[in-house]
């Protein structure tokens, strides 16, 4: 693995390898002094061309635990505003001696584009409406910790599937490890018939459901997506109350899933829209486990891309 650009190009062995490594290094986070020298002297560049709090902090935390130095960059105040192309920016930053680039960008494929032009590893921290591979890895790690196996598990994803890079990575990742993925949401925000073959990783492993109940029924895992107003620029949803009423999750919806079924959300959550407030107290809600596993997974990614150098 030279880069981590997306889930679609990873084999199930590579995914398992990353999860195993994440599981091993997670322990470091609980030490009295949660820091190891493994990546001392390595310089990681965090390029965030789009607002992010948890992903950026999570990568930064992962770097610090591993003793890598970080430089970060946000689009505001950068050379972008001076009209510099991203390629020039990257080449200049590379000349500073960077060993690895983590990039988030609002345009799909930007990490792939810079990876073509850089000799150092590139990690995709979310690109447009394409993929968010480290999010999928942390989702997998969370499910593996709680449920142990993936085979024959049913994962339901509810929300704006079409524009969600989290959904795209999760749909592929869970199937690659043996689970089936059922997606549901407003029909115009679901994959179109022509697109479905891409999301079907294993025969029968992917289903688009118009009725939320069909997706949720007996699910082992439910992932609610954030309604992302900022990524649309178009009025996709008539109103938030309409969304909450028809596609939001509440106690009634969780009755349909398997007893002990996990509730996940990539965050940040719009409470009262995609999740009812009461669900904060749902016993199998693992949203903060996801955040913690995010650090472990990103440590694993950094280690596997940098320690082989």
């Amino acid at each position: 693995m030279r880069h981590l650009l997306d889930i679609q190009s990873l084999s199930s062995e590579e995914i398992h390898g990353l999860l195993n490594l994440a599981e091993n290094v997670k322990e470091i986070l609980y030490r009295p002094i949660p820091k190891v020298p493994t990546l001392r002297g390595k310089l990681v560049l965090l390029l965030f061309y789009e607002p992010s709090t948890r992903t950026k902090f999570s990568f930064e935390r992962a770097c610090k635990v591993l003793s890598a130095d970080t430089m970060s960059f946000s689009a505001k105040g950068s050379s972008l505003e001076k009209g510099e192309t991203i390629l020039d920016t990257i080449k200049n930053l590379y000349a500073l001696g960077v060993n690895l680039v983590v990039i988030r960008h609002s345009l799909s494929g930007t990490p792939h584009f810079i990876a073509k032009h850089l000799k150092i590893p590139v990690v995709n921290a979310g690109d447009g409406i394409h993929e968010h591979p480290t999010q999928a890895l942390l989702d997998l790690l969370t499910v593996r910790e709680k449920l142990r196996t993936f085979t024959d598990r049913k994962v339901a994803i509810i929300g704006d599937i079409k524009h969600s890079r989290v959904a795209h990575s999760d749909i592929l990742a869970f199937q690659k490890l043996g689970a089936s993925v059922f997606v549901t949401g407003p029909a115009h925000l679901l994959p179109e018939p022509k697109e479905i073959p891409f999301f079907e990783v294993k025969p029968g492993g992917f289903k688009v459901c118009l009725k939320p109940r069909e997706a949720l029924q007996d699910a082992d895992v439910v992932i609610a997506l954030r309604i992302q107003k900022e990524r649309h620029g178009e009025a996709f949803i008539p109103s938030l109350r309409e969304y909450a009423q028809n596609f939001g999750l509440g106690p009634r919806e969780l009755e349909w899933i398997k007893p002990g079924g996990l509730l996940m959300h990539p965050g940040p959550i719009n409470w009262g829209v995609e999740l009812a407030h009461e669900l904060e107290k749902y016993p199998f809600q693992v949203i903060l486990d996801q955040v913690e596993n995010g650090v472990a997974v990103r440590m694993a990614v950094l280690l596997s891309l940098l320690s082989g150098e």
Binding site: Q8, S108, G109, I129, H130, H168, K194, E195, P197, F198
Partner: peptide, 13 residues
């Protein structure tokens, strides 16, 4: 083109 590839690349078709 809208279809399998636009889904794969995460590009609007």
């Amino acid at each position: 083109n809208e279809g399998i590839l636009s889904a794969k690349l995460g590009l609007k078709g």
